[in-house]
């Protein structure tokens, strides 16, 4: 048997996968990137190997992606996260037309054509509005763990609005809503709506068509996904593990390289 690896080192998390000849996922790992991205990539890769019950010697080739793709020690090649998310999402959903990926420091909408080819893409401008970091900051202000933010939002009964698109100003808005005695659940919902609206704006710019798939860490937030579907007026599919789609795409590129 032959195996391939993909490592996606982003601003917030380092994700790695191992696949076989058929592109089946054998193991994966997700770790916080921390301050040493090279080390994080190695640890994620080791974790994925362990989950797959393999050793480095079993792997033919590794590709990397993400912001630190050039720094990944194990990788023989690198692709941008745009190509990798398109490739990975296409492998999971062959009829995918639009990908919405919200990662730690950027959000992007990708229009995908035949074979997972990127037709067009747009990314957020340089600011962190509408990215994972935005949610992280808001979760901090609400003293709620990031992965509980959607549960909190689910209990919302009153509609509040966060009007600023700037992460820093939005945080002050959250703080001022708290001091007005507003319910954390309603604030969590308002925060989720702010990021969803911002993302829809991005997606509309690239053009939404075909099946819509959401990837990246923020796709784990049900509140954001549901709001996205509601505003887009179309269902939004989320893979079982949306955070490893980029790494999966990288592994597929590694497999498809000849030799």
């Amino acid at each position: 048997m032959r195996f391939w690896g993909g490592i996606d080192v982003g601003s917030l998390s380092a994700d790695a996968v191992i696949i076989d000849e058929e592109g089946r996922l054998l193991g994966h790992a997700i770790l916080p990137t921390g301050r040493d991205s090279r080390e994080a990539g190695s640890r994620a890769y080791a974790g994925a190997l362990e989950a797959a019950g393999l050793t480095p010697g079993d792997v033919v080739r590794v590709y990397s992606t993400g912001y630190s793709r050039a720094r990944v020690r194990e990788a023989e090649g690198a692709k941008t996260e745009i190509a990798c998310h398109a490739r990975g999402a296409h492998a999971l959903y062959p009829d995918v037309g639009t990908i919405i990926d919200i990662g730690g420091q950027d959000s992007k909408a990708i229009q995908v054509g035949k074979g997972g080819r990127v037709l067009n893409f747009v990314m957020n401008d340089k600011c962190a509005a509408g990215t994972g970091r935005f949610l992280e900051v808001m979760a901090g202000a609400l003293e709620t763990p990031l992965d509980h933010l959607d549960e909190l939002a689910a209990q919302s009964t009153e509609t509040l609005t966060i009007s600023s698109i700037c992460t820093v100003f939005a945080e002050s808005e959250v703080v001022s809503l708290i001091s007005q005695g507003k319910k954390p659940a309603d604030i969590a919902m308002a925060v989720s709506r702010a990021i969803a609206r911002r993302t829809v704006g991005l997606a509309t710019r690239v053009g939404v068509s075909g099946r819509v798939v959401m990837t990246g860490g923020v796709a784990k937030n049900r509140a954001v996904v549901d709001l996205l579907a509601e505003i887009l007026g179309a269902p939004v599919d989320v893979p079982d593990e949306p955070q490893i789609v980029g790494a999966l795409g990288a592994a597929l590129f590694a497999r498809d390289e000849r030799g």
Binding site: E81, F121, M123
Partner: peptide, 11 residues
């Protein structure tokens, strides 16, 4: 950020 976009464009 800029180079990620430019790389994707070149791809």
């Amino acid at each position: 950020q800029i180079e990620a976009r430019l790389d994707a464009f070149i791809e």
